[in-house]
């Protein structure tokens, strides 16, 4: 039996496979298809303090090997989550990671302060990178100072570890990553979706009501992988890789470049059991490679040395 457990420094998890925020609802919707306790972690849908309706439809467009969404973070708010959802997740023995959102710095703080009083949450993922909730795709993760400010504030407000989720829609993600680390983020997860646009050529209208949205799915995997690699080279805190993961081999690519764990997103829509298949594939891969622990594989990526140009 291969040891798939991974250490994020502040917590050891049974395996490196999480469901990504916004792709598994509040976790409970997945119960017909899988046992939540078999996952390394369940990152539940982004939570604001108050309930929200989200964006008007249409919210989704399928693109080549990808999905463009402008859902806009509809949600039940922290009170209903703590009262109705959290006890059920606890009963399922799920490792719960709550994705924390806010319209203001103050709201981020209120969300973690409220949730800190409720047991059954392993840590928080700080969502400073949703592209769909602010005009023009502006979000704190596009700016190093805003990132530093919010992460510092949340870090002071909570007893729990925080993992900051970064946006890929920046010129240099390592600058934002460093800001989050310096502000005290215990881990980083990346990437959120890439801003994208789809046009209905018949009508000349955008296909999404929100005009543009965030692209996810297999199409973004190489883009995400490059960024994860760069950030792993830059920071000391653990990095969790996200972006287009569908198979065990996709997950292994992220682990190879140094991600301690990965989140699986869009693939859950296609196959709600995909995370368990990925876990099996990791087991098989390690057995084949005669690795007793997945941690021996993490960071194994060795770029070839550039040949001397003549």
């Amino acid at each position: 039996m291969v040891d798939l457990s991974v250490d994020l420094g502040f917590i050891r998890l049974s395996n490196p496979i999480f469901t990504a925020s916004g792709t598994c609802g509040y976790g409970l919707e997945m119960i017909p298809f899988l046992e939540l306790k078999k996952l390394g972690g369940v990152v539940v849908k982004g939570l604001y303090f108050e309930p929200r309706q989200g964006n008007p439809p249409p919210r989704l467009v399928e693109t080549t090997a990808g999905l463009l969404n402008a859902i806009g973070l509809p949600g039940i708010g922290v009170e209903a989550f703590a009262r109705e959802v959290l006890p059920q997740l606890h009963q399922q023995q799920a490792t719960v990671i709550v994705n924390v959102c806010g319209n203001t710095d103050d709201e981020y703080e209120r969300v973690v302060r409220y949730l800190d009083d409720h047991p059954g949450i392993a840590f928080y993922e700080l969502n400073i990178s949703c592209p769909n909730v602010k005009e023009g795709g502006q979000c704190p993760a596009l700016d190093a100072r805003a990132t530093f400010r919010i992460v510092s504030r949340v870090k002071k407000a909570t007893q729990r570890p925080i993992m900051t989720k970064l946006s890929p829609n920046v010129t240099d993600i390592t600058i934002i990553a460093r800001a989050a680390e310096e502000a005290g983020s215990d881990a980083l997860s990346l990437v959120n979706t890439f801003l994208g646009l789809a046009v209905d050529v018949e009508t000349g209208q955008p296909k999404l009501a929100n005009v543009w949205g965030g692209l996810s799915g297999p199409a973004i995997k190489p883009l995400a992988l490059r960024m994860v690699y760069q950030v792993v080279q830059t920071v000391k805190v653990p990095v969790v890789g996200i972006g287009g993961i569908v198979t065990g081999y996709d997950a292994l690519e992220f682990l190879a470049v140094g991600a301690k764990a990965v989140e699986v997103g869009t693939a859950n829509f296609v196959n709600p059991r995909v995370t368990l298949q990925i876990i099996d594939e990791l087991q098989n891969f390690c057995q084949k490679k005669q690795l007793s622990r997945i941690e021996d594989y993490i960071g194994s990526f060795r770029p070839r040395r550039e040949k001397q140009k003549t």
Binding site: M30, G54, P57, R59, L60, N268
Partner: peptide
């Protein structure tokens, strides 16, 4: 009828 991302309630894409 709606375009659906998942069909089982997790993506919130098919709202009306």
């Amino acid at each position: 009828e709606a375009f659906m991302g998942c069909g089982f309630g997790v993506c919130w894409g098919c709202v009306r």
